[in-house]
């Protein structure tokens, strides 16, 4: 067995087990930790594909920043109450969730089956990427020259989200009668 396949099976096993743990863990914080594990395994998979930049950004942004915020908020708000069990939910909810899961599974299997053997290969090969200065240079050049408009548009979207969040939070504080 070659190293790549071994690493792939390890990382994908971790990812699958971690995702199952996210659902099964009763404590929200423990579930969040499992999600961190899943993200980390994903980063490993990206790195195996040679996408080191995506792997690094996956860890830096999702694992290192967003999940820390998640855990922070969970720890700050809930005193670690167990989440609602499936047993307590209504029969309709159970049925709908089972149907949804089956549908998603079917879609996924369909997608894999149709896409097999026809994965489009781009013009960039590994050697070409190296000769053009590496992943980081290529991606950053792409973002800041050809796709700069979309990039800036996204940043405006995020800015709008931040401004509206602050506005909402502030309005709540004022109507609550407490002056911040």
């Amino acid at each position: 067995m070659d190293f790549g396949l071994l690493a792939f099976s390890i990382f994908s096993t971790i990812a699958i087990l971690g995702s199952i743990m996210v659902i099964l863990k009763k404590s929200p914080v423990a579930a969040a930790f499992s999600l961190v594990l899943v993200f980390f395994a994903f980063a490993g998979l990206y790195a195996l594909m040679g996408a080191h930049l995506v792997a690094a950004l996956q860890i830096l942004v999702y694992t290192g920043a967003i999940m820390v915020l998640f855990v922070f908020v969970i720890m700050l708000l809930s005193q670690d109450e167990p989440v609602n069990d499936l047993k307590e939910s209504s029969g309709l909810f159970k049925g709908v969730s089972v149907l949804g899961i089956l549908g998603l599974m079917g879609l996924l299997i369909r997608a894999v089956l149709t896409a097999r053997g026809m994965v489009p290969t781009g013009t960039l090969t590994d050697e070409k990427i190296v000769s053009m200065g590496g992943n980081v240079r290529l991606i950053s050049e792409g973002i800041f020259t050809d796709h700069v408009f979309h990039f800036e548009l996204t940043s405006f979207l995020l800015l709008g989200a931040v401004v509206s969040t602050v506005a909402l939070a502030k309005r709540k504080a004022v109507s609550g009668g407490s002056k911040a």
Partner: peptide
């Protein structure tokens, strides 16, 4: 290839 980004991501 990602150099210093690797440092920050692992350190985080």
């Amino acid at each position: 290839d990602v150099g210093v980004l690797y440092c920050f991501s692992v350190a985080s």
